[in-house]
Design a protein around this nucleic acid. Structure first.
Lengths: 330, 330
DNA sequence: CTGAAAGCGCTTACAG
DNA sequence: CTGAAAGCGCTTACAG
């Protein structure tokens, strides 16, 4: 019930509490014999230093905040897995902040800062000027994950979605397809806009007419929307920003007798488990989500170690993507 | 850069820091005029109390640990969503601990306790004696989520999976089906065992032979396994513990020309988005995952308020489930 | 209703 | 290499 204190360890080891503290934080400053003795007692008693006291005294907490818009997306979960693995490696624990409501972002950010974390991993769907301002005033290092920073004072780890979208589009054009439609989301996301730009660039370069439609994230609405669209259109290829939407589209096409991939090819942008459970299996961009989280956390630990991090130019780390060709393309 | 301290507020308001502290923690003890003045200055300066100092002085941290086996399951994400909403309501923040490796659970638990959280929400796939022992020695309240506690000193919020499985099986028997197979996971999970028990009970009661097979969580392996199974078996109904496995099975059946639901009916146990994106759409148990997280967090706040919580008998809260009949059954 | 003071459990210059 | 002491930023009895 009563947790062991540093005093108890000091007492049992016959040293001062300063020495126990040093064993924990600067072991090289303690004579080996003393150190081993203290270490043994710490282990015996199962002593764990109180995190609050430690944080208060050292002005460090060895915890990082992970700020995400929501959790239910498969990609977010996998990213956090990557973050957590790196965090464990460097001895950090994670404090989760879910920012469901954009309007409340400023409040949330206040909470994050007050929680006295040593650094922040920030994933945000929409980067506004306000967001950048907030981040720049933050007293601890911040790294964007799965978003590209526009300021070179703020680091980010991302994938070049524009380039990815461009490549896929170009490849499909090279394969002889002409009518390629880009399916985005009604709601504007910074990342989806990158994809849209890449698509448009490839189409325009090839002298083809870009065709962009926007659908909802809701499955029922999607089905109505896609049915309507297919009533009047016969695209050869659909590039769909979200896997769930891509699968929805394939299901609708199938029901209408439009064979995938023979009559319509469909490509998604994430390699979630959905992609493998669909029938036919979805071709999609392979985004290294786990690595993104992992790299971002590693990078953040570097910044947290570096006193002058905030004055230095920040890195933009772009991870390589891949394309997973499967059954929904020919 | 330099955060405002409680001293700054006290200075600006012309009161002692004790008064500022009271405004924050026991506002009713402060005269209204003083309180309002202090509150205004707090707001003006954007003051947020340092969480570590607060935690140290009050021996409370207003943070709770959420311990989960992994994050990539859709159900876990949704549960955390529910937890987070309740946490926000009561002013708690969440600290996430991912317990990927059962063997390391004891270490993890040590970390959790050292992090000086006020309470713990614990989701665990396998409840061992060791686990119970750990939990009982924990100095703060613990609530199991999506697991049923066997001890009446430990509270839990769950669904009666056994009953759920029993009902579904019975319903399918009533509809005239005889050959009903239960598809579990190779790896043993406490929850899946509950489902298996319910299934068996219904079968035995009806004088039917229970038939249980175990498959892997891995999609590729599943496909091989299901193909093998269907080579030699013609079940009328498959009850599958995991949605992704259920969908895999449907896809395989489809490819083999086994029409779902005409020749084979498939039922899942979670209502994830997979269920809606499958073709045909999967019939499944509707487990109130979000509510589970939400209720568990609410219950935990009650326990955290109650000094004697650990001496009282704990609640077992069983949430109602539903069944979502869709296209994969007839 | 308010203030002065002790104390929460650590870390880290500063001496030695 | 080690100890005594100050201090981190709060909260909360205790007086008044």
């Amino acid at each position: 019930m009563n947790q062991t204190k540093i005093y108890d360890i000091a007492g049992a080891a016959g040293v001062s509490l300063a020495t126990v503290s040093r064993v924990l934080n600067h072991p090289e400053k303690v004579k080996e014999a003393t150190r081993n003795k203290v270490l043994r007692i710490i282990k015996d008693k199962g002593y764990k230093p109180n995190a609050n006291a430690r944080g208060l005294a050292s002005r460090k907490s060895t915890t990082v905040a992970v700020v995400i818009p929501e959790l239910s997306r498969a990609s977010v979960a996998e990213m956090i897995q990557g973050i957590d693995d790196a965090a464990k490696k460097y001895g950090y624990t994670i404090r989760l902040f879910i920012n469901r409501d954009q309007a409340l972002q400023e409040d949330l950010w206040g909470e994050v800062i007050a929680s006295s974390v040593d650094g922040i991993l920030f994933m945000n769907d929409e980067m506004t000027k306000e967001t950048y301002r907030q981040v720049e005033y933050t007293p601890v290092p911040v790294v964007f994950v799965n978003s590209l920073s526009q300021k070179d004072t703020i680091g980010s780890v991302c994938v070049d979605y524009e380039d990815c979208s461009y490549s896929i589009t170009k490849e499909m054009i090279n394969r002889g397809n002409k009518r390629i439609v880009f399916v985005g989301t009604e709601h504007k996301y910074t990342l989806n806009e990158m994809k849209e730009r890449g698509y448009k660039r490839a189409m325009v370069e090839a002298g083809l007419e870009p065709e962009v439609i926007y659908s909802s994230g809701n499955i029922d609405k999607n089905e109505v929307f896609f049915n309507n669209y297919l009533d009047n259109n016969k695209p050869e290829v659909a590039l769909v920003v979200r896997d769930s939407m891509a699968i929805s589209l394939m299901n609708i096409a199938n029901k209408r007798g439009i064979k995938v991939p023979d009559m319509l090819q469909v490509i998604g942008f994430q390699n979630t488990r959905y992609a493998l459970l669909s029938n036919p299996k979805l071709t999609c961009a392979e985004i290294p989500i786990y690595e993104m989280g992992n790299k971002a956390m590693s990078y953040l630990t570097e910044l947290m170690k570096d006193e002058n991090a905030n004055r230095r130019k920040a890195n933009k780390i772009l991870l390589a993507y891949d394309i997973c060709w499967r059954e929904s393309t020919k």
